[in-house]
């Protein structure tokens, strides 16, 4: 048997796929041919190298991520989370057109209502939009933007509020995770038994604005909050925080003046920026009076000024006048 033919058969020989006569011929040949013997040795060595590749461990928290996503997807099927979306995930054309129309309406309302919009595009800290519907805030961190706002102004009969989240990526982002975190007084209406206050959605590639909604169940009075962030890998590129003053006034949202809304949003922003808990003092209207803990004074002045506002120190707290 010639070497070329033997070399062709060596792989089958190794796999034990040769017939008895063929195997005998190969055995005889490699007994006398050093070249084919060497070839067989290398193939065996390679097979050994492959079978000895060490298994690698999945990344940390992989199980939790899969479970969280499993519940998230299940919920999305039962109550579609995505309201409108354009680009990236390839929605149907009609759906995209409808989404785009809704977006234009939102965008127009937003631009026409926000006096700081022009400034915000250059500012380090994007401004707080003055949407009339309810408190809202645009991401104060990162380069992208998140707008969080309740779609309803009062909890429904079941004590639920629908929260809308609009995400504006600064540029196409890969492997995007959207994380929602609720304060202790609220849980997600379709609750994940593992994490009633937390939801992580894997969005994947995100190249254009996207809007989501989710229902939350309000269980206690006081100032509640929802924090929303977007990140790709370890890079958090946008974060937003919405404060909901549940039960502070008889009708928690509608009776708030625009100034109050701005004040609460500002407070949220200051909490966010200073990293210090700030205690809100009532009554709200035109002037926001709050006390602070720690040495956040400089930061408060700084961020107030970025928003075109002045913070005045007064009796251990600050008064920020909303123009």
């Amino acid at each position: 048997m010639k070497c070329d033919r033997v070399k062709e058969l060596l792989l089958d020989y190794l796999n034990g796929d040769l017939s008895a006569p063929e195997k005998l011929l190969v055995d005889e040949h490699i007994g006398i041919c050093p070249s084919c013997r060497e070839e067989l040795r290398k193939l065996e060595k390679m097979r050994h190298l492959l079978s000895s590749l060490k298994p690698i461990e999945p990344p940390p928290y992989f199980t939790q991520k899969v479970i969280a996503n499993y519940y998230a997807r299940k919920e999305r099927k039962a109550h579609p989370l995505r309201v409108f979306f354009f680009g990236g995930l390839k929605p149907s054309r009609a759906f995209a057109y409808a989404g785009f129309a809704i977006f234009l309406i939102f965008a127009f309302a937003y631009l026409s209502l926000s006096p700081w919009w022009g400034k915000a595009r250059q500012a380090v800290v994007p401004s707080i939009p003055t949407l009339k519907r309810a408190p809202s805030i645009i991401s104060a961190k990162g380069i992208g933007k998140i707008l969080v706002l309740p779609q309803t102004t009062t909890p429904d009969a079941q004590g639920r509020i629908r929260i809308e989240i609009m995400v504006y990526p600064p540029s196409p982002q890969e492997k995007v995770w959207l994380s929602l975190l609720l304060s202790q007084g609220m849980v997600f209406a379709s609750e994940n038994p593992l994490l009633p206050h937390q939801k992580d959605y894997y969005i994947g590639k995100l190249s254009s604005p996207v809007s989501f909604w989710t229902d939350v169940q309000v269980s206690s009075q006081g100032v509640q909050w929802i924090r929303v962030s977007c990140q790709s890998g370890n890079h958090k590129w946008a974060e937003g925080l919405l404060f909901l003053p549940i039960g502070i006034k008889p009708s928690p949202f509608v009776s708030l003046s625009q100034s109050d809304i701005d004040a609460i949003s500002l407070l949220a922003l200051l909490c966010e920026r200073t990293g210090k808990p700030l205690a809100l003092s009532v009554p709200l209207s035109s002037k926001l009076n709050f006390s602070y803990q720690g040495d956040a004074e400089g930061a408060i002045h700084h961020y107030a000024s970025l928003l075109g506002l002045t913070a005045l120190k007064y009796n251990g707290g600050f008064i920020i006048e909303i123009p």
């Binding site: 990344p59 992989f62 991520k65 899969v66 996503n69 499993y70 997807r73 492997k175 894997y202 994947g204």
Partner: peptide
Amino acid sequence: AEDIAQEALL
């Protein structure tokens, strides 16, 4: 691999 594995399990 993480993305593929997660999608496969889901």
